[in-house]
Simulated scan of single mutants.
Amino acid sequence: MRIILAQPRSFCAGVVRAIDTVEHALQRHGPQVYVRHEIVHNKHVVDKLKAQGAVFVEELAEIPTHAVAVFSAHGVSRDVEAEAAERGLRVLDATCPLVTKVHEQGRRYAAQGYSLILIGHAGHPEVIGTLSQACAPVVLVQSVGDVEALTFPADTPLAYITQTTLSLDDTRNVIDALQARYPQIVGPDTRDICYATQNRQAAVRELSRLVDVVLVVGASNSSNSARLREIAAQGGVPSYLISDGSELARDWVCDAKVVGITAGASAPEAMVEDVIAALGRLANVEVTTLPGREERVVFRLPSDLS
């Protein structure tokens, strides 16, 4: 069996920064550093940080007053920020800088008098935070159908912003529908969607042309990993989302001569190696890596840790 690895895959700079934030906080403050929600959407990452002493909570009320609290890479709402201040928590904000950029875009458009539209998935932590951080009413759209249901008057000054982990193709379709209905609308180009999202989606699109099946390593609640699986499937290749080698089903690959593997931006490379090992227990494997973009982006840690 040949295995072809997509390039790039696995951790992006925002995820590395978030994990490093928790690890540096533990080194500086000792155990009992509290993290609100999953720092990134991956159980293996969370479990590793728990083993180092990090405590994961759902609500700030679970954190002792004046303790160290880390906000996840997805960002938080203004209400969460206010509650943390009221409780005197020492906050380390691990929000990905590219998510923060979307927040800033929303605030800038709102200050200029635009009515705001957010393209994203309802209920996703990043979307929940962005809806609040814009500091103005925001209408969420998830599909072209949602665009058709909008009730803004034709001459309304409108601007859109986007969730960072969406499918580029789906986002482009929604933007096209917005521009067709409201020609005056302004907003960032799809190229402003997270660089890591773009790179991994382009890589899996190329990978799907070369293989019999695609395995996407990532958590079931990881938006960017789910989009990778969807894109591979759209290329006509059987595609599966798998958190590690234990979830590999023999039937998926028993007739495959070439298996493609990629990983979402929140999935550790160790889990890619775990899936390769699981395939190796089924057949002799030869592993190669597809040529692709090398990512050299590095984000600085929060100022309180630098």
Rank of each mutant, 00 (worst) to 15 (best):
M1A: 11
R2T: 12
I3M: 09
Q7R: 14
Q7N: 15
R9S: 14
F11E: 02
V15N: 00
V16K: 07
A18T: 02
I19F: 08
D20T: 01
V22D: 00
Q27N: 12
R28I: 12
Y34D: 08
V35C: 05
N42L: 10
N42P: 03
K43E: 05
G53H: 11
V55W: 00
V55E: 03
V57H: 05
E59C: 10
E62S: 10
T65W: 06
H66K: 15
A67I: 12
V68P: 10
F71D: 07
F71H: 03
S72C: 11
V76D: 04
S77T: 13
R78K: 14
A82M: 14
R87V: 05
L89W: 02
L89S: 09
V91D: 04
L92E: 01
T95S: 07
P97R: 02
V99I: 14
V102R: 06
R107K: 15
R107M: 07
Y109N: 01
S115C: 08
L116W: 00
L118E: 03
L118Q: 04
I119Q: 00
I119L: 11
G120T: 04
E126M: 08
G129C: 13
T130A: 03
Q133Y: 02
Q142F: 06
S143E: 07
V144I: 15
E148T: 10
L150W: 12
T151W: 09
F152S: 01
L158M: 07
A159I: 06
T164L: 08
T165C: 05
L168T: 12
T171I: 10
V174T: 02
P188T: 05
D192F: 09
D192A: 15
I193G: 02
C194K: 04
Y195T: 08
Q201F: 05
L210R: 15
L210M: 15
V211P: 01
V213T: 13
S222H: 02
S222I: 05
N224I: 06
V237G: 13
P238G: 12
L241M: 12
W252Q: 02
V253M: 04
C254M: 08
A256T: 12
A256R: 04
V259L: 09
V259M: 09
I261T: 14
T262V: 12
A267S: 13
E269T: 01
D274I: 01
I276P: 02
R281S: 09
V285K: 07
E286F: 08
E286N: 14
V287I: 13
V287K: 06
T289W: 11
P291F: 12
E294F: 10
L301D: 02
